[in-house]
Write a protein that binds this DNA or RNA. Structure first.
Ligand SMILES: [Zn+2]
Ligand SMILES: [Zn+2]
Ligand SMILES: [Zn+2]
Ligand SMILES: [Zn+2]
Lengths: 130, 130
DNA sequence: CCAGCGTTTGACAACGGTTATCACGACTCC
DNA sequence: GGAGTCGTGATAACCGTTGTCAAACGCTGG
């Protein structure tokens, strides 16, 4: 059903190399830069399809832009992202998982979902100073 | 520094009445509907200034739209929002506050911030069925 | 290997929420 | 009341994202 085209594999290979969360437009720029001509719309479509399949994680910046990242673990997890350089650590939070479920149930809510993202300044960036 | 104009008080009064998170455009519609003529740009500006002053909370929907709400408590807190009707409960989470700080520190990150939002179906909506 | 056909692509236009512009009006202070 | 300041609002611009649709492509069965 899903065909493997030159463009689709270019995107997945690029995502395998990139460590941090990147926007669709950044990824498009990178692909163009490395000679892999590809349409912007195709990048968006591919990322969306990968996200739907759970192959990449999506998170939204404060101003609504979507960032994508190919994470190590496919199971549910959260992120600790450096606000300066974008370095990302995948977080496993059993504590908050149960907390979220309990709080939701305590107020009579069902089918609880949660969004939990951590932002900070990583050690390397903190060392550099302002 | 901040003047109290007819438009600004109209927005704050409306926010005092509205229980749930609403978008800037919804609030603009409501103001227009109740005869309070006001420009859309002014609604955006006012909401932004209120948000900067910590008088309203902002949260982003999955597709990047900003929603605003005048919350009871001005201190830091989180939200449990019904995905059907928008009913909102303010959540106090000492557990997750310390968890977030610890996890951040454990990875050498400083100045940790966190985004934590809970979504579910409230008891009333669950009773109504699909 | 090739024809046929459904899928994917990509340039471009359109969309939707938000922000910038800037002339105008309203308020303040003297 | 006049100068200076700040807020307003219609409109245009912005920017990330999605829709359009003809052409290109990848797969498969023959
Ligand atoms: Zn992840
Ligand atoms: Zn979780
Ligand atoms: Zn709140
Ligand atoms: Zn918190």
């Amino acid at each position: 059903m899903q065909r493997m085209t030159r463009q689709r594999s270019a995107v997945t290979e690029l995502l395998a190399d990139v460590e941090d969360f990147r926007s669709a437009q950044q990824l498009h720029e990178l692909l163009r830069g490395q000679g892999n001509g590809i349409g912007l719309a195709t990048v968006y479509r591919t990322l969306q399809s990968l996200a739907d399949g759970g192959e990449v994680d999506v998170l939204r910046t404060g101003d609504g832009e979507a960032l994508y990242r190919r994470c190590e673990r496919r199971e549910h997890h959260h992120h600790l992202v450096c606000r300066r350089c974008g370095a990302t650590v995948e977080i496993d939070g059993p504590t908050v998982e149960t907390w979220a479920a309990q709080v939701g149930a305590a107020h009579g809510f069902t089918e609880i979902e949660h969004t939990i993202e951590l932002t900070g300044t990583c050690a390397r960036c903190a060392a550099e100073g302002p």
